[in-house]
Structure formats: C-alpha cells, structure tokens
Design a protein around this nucleic acid. Structure first.
Length: 222
DNA sequence: CACCAGGCAAGTA
DNA sequence: TACTTGCATGGT
C-alpha cells in the first residue's frame, strides 16, 4: 500500500471517530496566535489558563500587547511556563504586525504564504511549528503542521520521510495528502486527539478508535 | 519526589 | 546535518 493510500485510510477512520469542528475553528485569529505560542512545550490546560488571563485583562489585541509592559504580560501568562520567552515572542509578533504595511492583523494574515512563514519565523520564540499553526488555523492556508505527535504516530505506522527534518516531514505529507485547508486542520487535530486520548497507560486500551491498530500497541498500519 | 507536556534557540561535534 | 541543554509552571 502506498503512503498516500495509508494516509487516506487513516484520515477516513479518524474522521468518523473524532470531531474537530470545535478545534481552533471558532476562535479569533489573535486567540489562535496567542494559543499557539502559549501552548509551546506545555499542556493545553496550562496554556488555556494563561489565555483566559489575557482575555480577562481585556488587553487581547495587537496594539495592547505591543504597548503593554513586558512584566505585566509575563505575569498574565505565567501559568503557561517558560513565560519570559513567550512574553518576548508575543511582543515580537505584535511589533512585527504593527510595523508591517498598514499595521493591522487582518492585512498581515493576507501576506503570501511563503512570505508569511519567513516573517513569522524571524520572531524569536516562533519556530516552524508555531508559525505553521498560525498559518493553518489563523491565516487558513493549507500547510501541514508537524509536531511530536505527528512524527511519533506516523513513524509507528512506517510512514516516514527520507530525512527527519521538519521540511522533509512537511513535504512528505504535502505530497501524499490532498492539499486542503480544512482537511489539514482536521487531520492535525485528529492526530493530537488520538495521541492524547488513546493508550496512554496500557497498550490497546478499549477507548482507542483504531482498536487493535492503536499506535501504541500495533505493529501494522490499518 | 520525579517526570513530562501540542517547542525554541543556542551551542556542540 | 543531527544531538544536547535550559527554559518554568502545573498535573500525575
């Protein structure tokens, strides 16, 4: 079976098992952006606590973040861990947006995909994955997000690119999955859900939607 | 008490 | 190119 066929089948199974419609679909672009930065190397629970603090402070807008004291920002997002680095990333991004073209987030998110990636990556604290999270879920362009889960799950199924770099993984998936924003959004969400909800403690647990083919216990793909 | 979580960047070989 | 380490809070 080709990699393309395997990925297609995997998506079909996940698509009838999980619902990704509430996964970063209804949030505003700015909430998506902050969430993507805040969730770095922590759980969504910790990131969400920090995001809630930002919302409650009523300073969740590009200009407010750009102008507010870094120390205040740090304290608001403290619960997400590595908060000094994340505060710098948020500040850097706000500065980037404000100083680009007309200075609005709307305009910024309309930049050509490749240029958008370059711009985002230039901010300290925003790497490949966070940039692609923003491009996929905030700017809504079809780029596949490569995270630890994607690599771990697909590797279990023998689906690996020739080299292990971020670019190799992304090109591999772009070649073998129909290029569609909604599909990329769902697929990535499914992989995260699968990794988080299935077989954390014991192999082949009953809740895994892939059943005996669950990535933790299985040897063979689908 | 030890370990890890939806990374990133700087340093090393 | 590919590994290693610090970052830091909160949950198990």
């Amino acid at each position: 079976m080709t990699a393309r066929a395997k990925l297609h089948q995997m998506f079909e199974i996940l698509n009838v098992s999980y619902d990704a419609s509430d996964w970063w679909q209804e949030e505003s672009p700015l909430e998506v952006i902050c969430g993507a930065i805040l969730v770095q190397n922590t759980t969504w629970g910790n990131a969400y606590t920090a995001l809630t603090q930002l919302i409650k402070s009523e300073k969740l807008c590009i200009n407010q973040i750009y102008e507010m004291e870094i120390v205040e920002l740090e304290q608001l997002i403290r619960s997400s861990g590595t908060y000094k680095a994340k505060a710098l990333a948020l500040k850097g991004l706000a500065e980037l947006v404000v100083t680009t073209d007309e200075g609005t987030l709307d305009a910024f998110l309309k930049i050509k995909t490749s240029d958008l990636k370059t711009a985002l990556i230039s901010v300290k604290g925003i790497g490949d994955e966070t940039a692609d999270d923003i491009i996929l879920y905030a700017a809504r362009r079809p780029v596949f997000v490569i995270d630890k889960f994607t690599k771990r799950i697909l590797s279990r199924y023998g689906l690996t690119p020739t080299r292990n770099s971020y670019r190799s993984w992304q090109e591999f998936l772009h070649r073998n999955i129909e290029e569609d924003t909604l599909k990329f959004q769902s697929f990535h969400a499914f992989l995260v859900m699968l990794a988080q909800q299935s077989c954390k403690t014991k192999p082949q647990c009953s809740t895994c939607v892939l059943k005996e083919r669950c990535f933790t216990g299985c040897k063979v793909l689908l």
